[in-house]
Design a protein around this nucleic acid. Structure first.
Lengths: 315, 315
DNA sequence: GGTAATGCATAAGTGTCGGTTATGATGAGG
DNA sequence: CCTCATCATAACCGACACTTATGCATTACC
């Protein structure tokens, strides 16, 4: 019934004191104001403007509208300002969920980059395994999910359903074998998984353990898992102590130097992709795009890389 | 840029959770919502709604709009309610100005009638002589002016410029001559002004005195004004004491019985009209119309009487 | 896993709203 | 008394916003 334009007109009349100057103030012509007032009057069924001679002044009802106009227009301006702030990266919030081992280096670095680039964007971060973070993304509880997906193996169920989502390749993470430095095969550089079939194994989370078992199964043995510890630093501690060997992702090894362990490339190589995932619509939200760029920068990946479609090519 | 309709739509989507049910809630069809959102998005340049699969949810920017919508729409509703309250006589204010002697009976009675009919209308009242009240009316500082104007005499300048105004006849007030009860002519009923040429006269305000002098001039004498007292009760007191005679309007005499004075009709009759005046636009304001009706009722006049146009007919 | 149902997007059509220019009427001022 | 200034009105016109009809995708169910 009453719209913002009408309020704007009433306020302009109240401020300017005449239709003509109100029209000038609003960038309209005088007849526009004239019939705008008439429309408002027949909509509300009240007299809003008192025409006396060639001067006009607001009636009580008209003053009511003009008075309310101040608050309403201010609120509209505030809303508009907030929107443009979000559009201009001067405000906004990005909810990030990432799998635990990425929290070590990738996520903190990305957060730092984002903050330095856009200090007014707030980023919230939650650790979550890929299935959980993707569920949150689908449920709308999360804006960006950082997940990993194995390229090669279909033994483990690490490839999630990424339909309806867009992914951005961050980096390829190689799974390396960590052994004590004095292990016989420590200096060989590359080794086959089966070479360590009789070793004691240190596994991490259930998913990681399942992956290990899957890889070993392809290599033809069943690993003896003597330790289950999720924390990779603790795992490397066990390796250092000579209590076993472990599969450790490259990003963990790169995070800090571990002089007391040797790492071997596996043959066949076991790589997993680390991906940032979001939805097509959120990709067009400036803050989300900035967060993805920050993640790419943190990973050293090319930010302009087109999204890697993984769903259709499990290789 | 952002209008109330857009906010309403965003809020409906936020509340209902889908375009379709939002459309139902607002009485629109689904495509209307769809392209309304699209318009809003390309106006603001931001993504407001995230489409995931066949479900939709608001982005941060969309939530900003939905959040502001609550306040804005509430303010609009409040404004609308105030307007309809004014239109429905459940609110409103009437600023009345009336000349002093009308305050005795007419105005209080009218105020009482108005209050009993429409208890929620506030009426403010200021005493003012006709020129002042009409000036206030023209300046927009007053809604209804109660004035008097002499029908017959053009000696006094009691006829104001009533162009651009509408008048409503309240009652005809006859100017009567008040004498002591024991005056020789007290029982004659009707007398000529010249019969009292040699009496001591009691006059009131400057305008009233001018009127008296004007009437006497037409009757061929110059009155001896021994007293000038504005208050009519005091004037009657002087008359009672036998100190002189006075011209007193009928409405004063009717207000209370004064057993110790005799009143005579004048020949020629000196009548003045008591009028309620307002502007054409204000006449269409319910509260003003109600106030005029109350004044008519208080005066015992027919409320349906068409406005008496006095300006063109001073005879 | 095929099929039906559901929900959003798009296209085309249409009316009305809200603006313009042009013109008239009328009060205010020199 | 004439002129200027202001509001009202008329005629015109484009664009916006809603409709119906349809397509396309996902989701759910058998």
């Amino acid at each position: 019934m009453i719209d913002a334009a009408g309020l704007r007109v009433m306020k302009a009349i109240a401020d300017e004191g005449s239709f003509t100057s109100a029209a000038n103030a609003l960038g309209f012509t005088q007849p526009a104001i004239s019939q705008m007032v008439r429309r408002l009057e027949q909509r509300t069924g009240t007299v809003l403007v008192e025409r006396y001679g060639r001067q006009v002044r607001l009636t009580e009802a008209g003053q009511v509208l003009a008075r309310h106009a101040v608050g309403v227009l201010a609120a509209l301006d505030a809303a508009e300002e907030e929107i443009t702030a979000i559009a201009g990266l001067r405000a906004g919030r990005v909810r990030l969920q990432a799998f635990p081992s990425s929290s070590a280096t990738l996520v903190p670095k990305a957060l730092a980059i984002l903050r330095s680039r856009h200090p007014d964007i707030t980023m919230t971060f939650t650790e979550a395994e890929p299935p959980q973070s993707l569920a949150a993304l689908r449920a709308g509880d999360c804006d960006v999910a950082v997940i990993f997906a194995t390229k090669d193996v279909d033994a483990g169920e690490l490839v999630e359903d990424l339909s309806l989502l867009v992914t951005r390749h961050l980096l390829d993470d190689e799974l390396r074998l960590a052994t004590p430095k004095d292990h016989p095969l420590a200096q060989t550089g590359t080794a086959s998984l089966s070479d360590f079939a009789s070793e004691d194994w240190i596994a991490g989370c259930p998913r990681c353990r399942a992956h290990l078992v899957g890889l070993a199964d392809k290599a033809g043995f069943r690993p003896t898992v003597s330790f289950e510890i999720e924390d990779y630093v603790a795992q490397l501690g066990l390796v250092t102590a000579g209590l076993g060997v472990a599969l450790v992702p490259d990003i963990i090894l790169n995070a800090a130097k571990h002089d007391d362990v040797a790492t071997l490339s596996l043959s066949p190589v076991s790589q997993r992709q680390i991906l940032a995932v979001t939805t097509p619509d959120l990709l067009r939200v400036p803050a989300v795009a900035a967060a993805l760029d920050a993640l790419c920068a943190a990973a050293g990946a090319d930010p302009s890389t087109s999204p890697a479609e993984l769903a259709a090519s499990p290789a």
